[in-house]
Structure formats: C-alpha cells, structure tokens
Design a protein around this nucleic acid. Sequence first.
DNA 1: AAAGCATGATTCC
DNA 2: TGGAATCCCTGCTT
Length: 571
Amino acid sequence: MPPTTRRMSFPRVVIERDTDSEESSSEEEEEPQNFDHEVEVEVEVEVEEEEVIENEKEAKVLEDVKKKGKAPITISLKKVCKVCKQTGHEAGFKGATYIDCPMKPCYLCKMPGHTTMTCPHRVSMEHGVVPARKRSTRSPLDFVFERQIRTNVPKIKPAFVVPDQVDCAVIRYHSRRVTCLEFHPTNNHILLSGDKKGQLGVWDYDKVHEKTVYSNIHSCILNNMRFSPSNDGTLYAASSDGTISCTDLETGMSSALMNLNPDGWHGPSSWRMLYGMDVNADKSLVLVADNIGYLYMMDMRSHNKTGEEILIHKKGSKVVGLQCNPVQPELLLSCGNDHFARIWDMRKLEAQSSLVDLPHKRVVNAAYFSPRSGSKILTTAQDNRIRIWDSIFGNLESPSREIVHSHDFNRHLTPFRAEWDPKDPSESLAVIGRYISENYNGAALHPIDFIDTSTGQLVAQVMEPNITTISPVNKLHPRDNVMATGSSRSLFIWRTKDDSELVQEKDERKIILCGKSGKKPKGKFDCGSDDDSDNDTFSPKGKKSKSNKSEAKPSSYTLNKFKTKSTKSSK
DNA sequence: AAAGCATGATTCC
DNA sequence: TGGAATCCCTGCTT
C-alpha cells in the first residue's frame, strides 16, 4: 500500500473562543503566537564573498592587536555552528528545512558519517521510515514453529484505516503539555487527558463544548491512567506526586489511594514518583511502578496495598511502562530506564525472576503486548528505533524487526510511545508521532506516522498545517476510526475524511480556544476578532520563488486558517 | 527578533 | 558512586 498522501485541501474550520471559565489554570498571562504563514525564502549565502569579508575583518582585528602590541585575543567573526562550534557550516533551520550539523551522528539513525538528509533510512522512502534489515539470527525452524503458534492472526491483512483529518480540537486546553490520553471504555465520545501539572481533562468531543479540567487530583505529572474494569465511571491515575488517584468521573470526587511520600518533601533524592500503571481485572489489582525500580500492587476493592514492593528494574531507575497481557493476564510486561523491557509471571513475582529480559540500546519509553492475541510485543526506545517481537512464544533473543523512526528523547517533550491500533485484526498497524519535521510547502510540520510493523513500511503520515508543535501522544480509539492527539497543551480529534463528513454537516471543523487569550487575538487558531486576513491560501508566493523545487506539490492548497463562526470571518 | 527558561538522560570525572 | 556539565529539529514567554 502506498503511503497515504497529505490532503490537498483542508476543510473550513469553525473556531470558538471558550466562554466558560473552566479553562485550566495557568499562572502566566498568555499571548497567542503569530501564525502568519511566511513562505520559506531560501537564502543562498554567497559563502566565498562572506568569507572574504570575514577574513578582512579578522585581518583588521589582528592589525589592531599588533598595533597595541598585546597578546592577540581570539575573536572569531566567522559564523559558527551552534551544535559543534566549528566554522564552515551551520546547523539549524533554513526556512522550514533543518540542516544537521555534519559533525554529529545522524539525528535519525544515530550512525556517524551522514546527516538526516542523506540517511539510508530516509532516502528510500522520502519520509524517514523504513525497516531495518531483518536480523538473521533465527533459523528457518523458528519461523515454522512460530507460524504454528500464531493461529489467530489473519493471513490476509485488511486495509488499514487511518484517521487523517482533524475533526475538532481544544486549543490550549491544558495549562501544561499533555502527557497521556485514554478513551472512555464505553462512552464513545469521552476523552481523558492528563498533563504535566497533574491535571485531568475530561472532554466530550462529540458535544465539543463539554469539557472539564480537574486541577486538584495531582500536584505534578500525571504519567498514566486506566479505567476500572469493574466500573467504567472510575479512573485510576499514577502521578509523579507519588500517589494513585481514584476518581469518580460522575461526581469528580477523587481520593489518593497510595502515597509514597507520606512525610512530604525532603529533597529530590528521597521523593518517590509513580510512572508505569495498569490494572489487572482478573486479580482485581492496580499495578504501579515507581522511579527507583519497584512495583507495587493495590487491591481494587479494598484499596489496600497487597504484598511488598518488588524490585523489577535496576535499582534507582524509572519503570515507565506496565501492561498485563490481554489474553493471559498473569503475564506482565514492564519497561524502563534501565534499557530493558521484561516479561513477568505474576504468579511468581519477585526480584530477578523475570521470564524474559528484552535489552535495548537506550531507555524504553513504552512496551505493549499486541491488543488481540497478546502474542506480539512492540517497544519504543530512545535510540530512535521501534522494535517488534512477533511472538512471545518464539525466540525472543532479538527483536523480529527494528524500525528506525525519529522519536528522540527531549526533556521538554512527553516521551513518544508507539501504540498498536486496537482495531487492526492483523495486529500490525502502529501509530507514533514523529520528532523531526518535514518541510511541508514551507512549514516545518511534525507528522504522526502509521507504521505497518510487520514490514516496517510507513503506511501513512498525517499532519495538519495548524499543528506546528510535535505530537508525542496519540491514541487510537478502541472501536471508532478516530484518533486523539495531545500536542503541547492542545487536544485534537482526527477522523477519516469520509467519517468526518458524515459527522459534520459540512466540511467543517470545530475548534475551541481555551486558555487566557490576552490582547490582540492574532494568529494560529485565534483569528477571532479583527484579524480577518483573507489570505487563507498558503502557497509559495514568496519573494524569490526558487524554493521547493523538490516539493512538487500543487502550487497552492487551502490552508483555511481556523476561522470564527462570527459573521466577519467568512468571505 | 533575540534571548531566556523549564528541566531529564547521559557522560564524564 | 554521585554531582556537574552537556545537549540536539521544543514551546513558550518577555
């Protein structure tokens, strides 16, 4: 299947400023940023000329120094690479295209000797995602064996359905970046979102305006949340404040069930945080793990801790992911900062007793069993590789596939996690946001990638000109062809184009602006009042139009800045 | 428009 | 072993 291409036109967008005062709290006064699309102008620097000038300047400096008879002070007037501090090249954005520092290893595959632009993992596919070569550490017998075991995976892969169009959004809904998302297990239009500040958002994206942010549940990062398997109005959340919260979504009442810091703050070295979390319906347990390698279990009925904590990862390292196998709930998968993902048998859980250790080259952000058979494992590591083990019953010595994909660690971003599409019967489609940007007709955009993990092929990359921030948090709906994205502080709901047109009468999107909006509204998502620039087309109208030869795209497509419903905006 | 800040894994000593 | 320096395509503010 060829990669799904970008949409050639974008629908009209209805923007509404949030009127209720439910917006998430935010200390600072906020000002919307500009979003006037300035098309990239390629500045072709005449290097030689510049060098001459610089040399002249340098010579002058040297001359002055000589006159004064003092020891020469080294003043470099040459432009210096901000990455390696050497001259002769410069790293950074040239328009919407990022130029790597050639002295550093490739930002994509991390190998030295080339840059992202010429990375072999990018060249063949134009957009940076290709399969790594399959490792040949397995014998043919392994594959035969594996085929016998994996019986419940369909032989013919159905066509993937990709939600590729933003249907509605809440902009600046959270007061800090979004850290996790969860769809309501039974109510199809409810999206739960957690943020770095510990706030919990509940948004009915069908009735777009129905949204709440709870700000008093946690005091810092909400790392993971799960619904109670026995009561879908109850949500558990694990936070870096060291507590598990249990929230009744009807009443908004919340209680802390576990507190790893009962004595309060005694400095960063003693503060405990909760990261990984899952629920085990069979055993009626909430499983959580902390920042120093321990696993805790809590009974969901009594809300009491059961048993002692168990060291499941290297002491002192974060355990960021926990998941019980969907088919065999006594199988537990964990992953963390010690560069391992591990499989455990919950019937004999103790330190050092893992069934399997899956080594990675860097921190493992996430590890998931496949959603239906539970027999595959998908991990996301900070070495820019997605790894897939095709069968937990087969040879687990090395991953079945490693897919090079840009999802680096950045301390200011929520860690990326590749997640399975729960609706894909073949258990091969996964979604993950992309770190490095693509020059998209002059705008640097960060697509969300859909990857066929059975081949490593990029199935689709979805993006939206108005989302200029990176989208590390993405969740596919368990039943509908819907995807939720958390990008910076905003939430987006994507649908497939056809579905979207069924839902919306016209080709219209509903965008709700939250957060304090300050003075003159102007720019992205915010052309509400007087900023009524009719220039909605986004085309290389630039001055020296020598840019984008390679981007052989239509000369213009409609960007449709998100408009207000108010009378003024539609011309 | 440029600079500053928030702040986590890793490396180095 | 532990603290300091380093970092890199961020996102926001002043």
